[in-house]
């Protein structure tokens, strides 16, 4: 149960740079009315950012050529199927984790 002053300062630094991008938009939209085109643009953000996060995890950019991350891709397929058919967050997470655990056991 210990820490050091530099460590606390480091964590505070990380906290501030995480907090500002989260809070600034909430202050911004109170004072500035966003133009219609920006609001329309924002409607696309949920699907775009969620698909970007998923797809990025399916690529492997460690080498000189970007390839698939085969393990993640293999676990992703049953996960996606369960998500589409059950529409359930918790079932999807369970199937994803179990699929990955099984795959890591064999490969």
């Amino acid at each position: 149960m210990t820490t050091t002053v530099p460590m606390i300062l480091l964590m505070l630094g990380c906290a501030i740079v995480t907090w500002l991008p989260r809070v600034i938009p909430f202050m911004l939209v109170r004072n500035v009315e966003l133009p219609d085109v920006v609001l329309r643009w924002l409607k696309y953000i949920p699907v775009c950012i969620l698909s970007a996060l998923v797809i990025e995890s399916l690529f492997n950019a460690d080498g000189s050529i970007v390839t698939f991350d085969w393990l993640n891709l293999a676990a992703f397929i049953p996960t996606l199927i369960v998500a589409v058919f059950t529409k359930s967050l918790s079932k999807t997470v369970v199937v994803g984790v179990v699929s990955m655990a099984i795959l890591r056991y064999f490969f």
């Binding site: 995890s57 993640n72 992703f76 998500a83 967050l89 997470v93 994803g96 984790v97």
Partner: peptide, 21 residues
């Protein structure tokens, strides 16, 4: 890592994406 727990994040993003679509 061998427990597959780290994949929970990707699975959750996947489910949220499907729910949005």
């Amino acid at each position: 890592e061998s427990w597959g727990l780290d994949f929970a994040l990707i699975a959750m993003f996947c489910a949220l994406l499907v729910l949005n679509l």
